[in-house]
Design a binder for these strands. Structure first.
Length: 220
DNA sequence: GACCAGGCACATC
DNA sequence: GATGTGCATGGT
């Protein structure tokens, strides 16, 4: 195992020791996970929960029911998640693909390879890389490492990836150095989000500090 | 009141 | 290709 691979696994173990298994993704069904992946775009999860709850109360958290809603009906139900107009469109786009081509059945996609699933998801307007990878990993239970802003922040601050590395470069970095393991991918991303929420502010006051103090909420 | 949150597409250069 | 901007609610 390479030194970098060792370091990644040590960081993983530290996070797991600190926070324990995260049991991701929260949701009662793969479909709910898929919807949640769109709703959580640049949005706090507690707001997403409110939106999901409204969808459940309206008995619209199924592909068939949601597909029948008008734009305005859907936008109103997901209002607490923010960006409700754009997210309503994005969910509609996702549902068109899912219902028209696969009859709204998750099982119809279970034999797709990760790369095919990813290509099809990325063709949908409103489904970007992180959302696609989240759906593949957490809704379809297939190994596709998810990168988010916390991943970029934390691992550049630890000097493991470059500041200007893009999404695909960071994803490749993890997939190159980690075993291709569904459970590891699942837990690692969830743990990164957890530590990111607590310790990884977007604009560290001591940016550039050689002590990396900004990783620990220490301000100089 | 300012800042942030589990992004993405689009316009412009 | 990179940079800037709009999208919006709710918690701290």
């Amino acid at each position: 195992m390479s030194q970098i691979a060792n370091q990644l696994m040590q960081m993983y173990q530290s996070l797991l020791d600190q926070y324990g298994p995260r049991h991701w993704w929260p949701g009662d069904s793969p479909f709910e996970v898929m919807v949640g992946a769109v709703l959580t775009q640049n949005t706090n999860w507690t707001n997403v929960e409110k939106a999901l709850e409204r969808l459940k109360n309206a008995e619209c958290l199924s592909a068939d029911k949601m597909n029948r809603l008008t734009h305005d009906q859907l936008a109103d139900l997901i209002r607490p998640a923010g960006y409700f107009n754009i997210k309503a469109k994005r969910l509609k786009n996702l549902l068109s693909w899912f219902c028209d081509q696969y009859d709204g059945q998750m099982a119809a996609l279970e034999n797709h390879s990760v790369s095919r699933l990813r290509e099809e998801l990325l063709e949908i307007n409103g489904i970007g890389r992180e959302t696609a990878d989240s759906i593949i990993l957490y809704a379809f239970n297939k190994p596709s490492f998810v990168v988010d802003t916390y991943t970029h922040r934390i691992f550049t601050r630890h000097g493991l990836i470059a500041q200007d590395d893009g999404y695909e470069e960071i994803k490749d970095f993890f997939e190159r150095h980690l075993e291709e393991d569904l459970h590891l991918y699942n837990e690692y991303h969830a743990l990164i989000v957890e530590v990111g929420k607590h310790h990884c502010k977007p604009k560290p006051k001591c940016d550039g500090c050689p002590l990396s103090c900004y990783d620990h909420d220490i301000e100089i």
